[in-house]
């Protein structure tokens, strides 16, 4: 394995063991007649932060479903992601209130700084993924940015980039 590859996968790989054991727990919790594939996928996505192909095959195996069916369900719901996400998930709200307060200029500023484009919204080092959502219910704070669950309100493009920069620097020091 080349060093480059290692660095790329390391943030998600480091937790491999805990994640895999948790995956088995999630499946075990959801046995019997009223098990719900959607609930399993939700819980697993929380663990892996996306739904890797192999993990979907594993779920299909454990539940005796065809992989195509599990894949079908995973792609039907917008909440599921089949692409790996960066360590930090940077979410910019683009609901009506935020849009009016120019949330997209925040989005654009981060894109420019980290060289992200439509279709490539994760940094090559897997540190950040940028995405938009429709209204997170904090319209009073518009425009809103959320990073791994933490909300930043009334954010300006400059402030947003500064926050992301800070996280990036901290991560570098830890490495």
């Amino acid at each position: 394995m080349s060093t480059e590859q290692q660095i790329q996968v390391s943030p998600s790989r480091r937790n491999g063991q805990r994640q895999f054991f948790r995956l088995n727990e999630i499946i075990a919790e959801q046995t019997g007649a009223n098990r719900s594939l959607i609930a399993i996928l939700q819980a697993v996505q929380e663990e892996y932060r996306y739904l890797p192909e192999e993990v979907l095959t594993y779920i299909a195996t454990a539940l005796d479903l065809s992989p195509a069916t599990v894949f079908g369900v995973a792609t039907f719901f917008a909440q599921f992601s089949l692409e790996p996400k960066g360590h930090y998930l940077v979410t910019i709200c683009d609901g009506t209130a935020c849009h009016v307060k120019r949330s997209m200029s925040v989005y654009d500023a981060i894109c420019r700084k980290y060289d992200l484009t439509e279709g490539r919204l994760t940094t090559p080092d897997m540190l950040f993924t940028l995405e938009t959502v429709a209204c997170v219910g904090a319209c009073g704070l518009a425009p809103v940015m959320i990073i791994n669950g933490k909300t930043y309100g009334q954010i300006s493009p400059e402030a947003a980039v500064a926050i992301v920069d800070k996280l990036a620097n901290r991560e570098e020091k830890e490495e």
Partner: peptide
């Protein structure tokens, strides 16, 4: 045909 799930990396 698929990939691996890392457990201890």
């Amino acid at each position: 045909f698929g990939q691996f799930i890392p457990v201890v990396a």
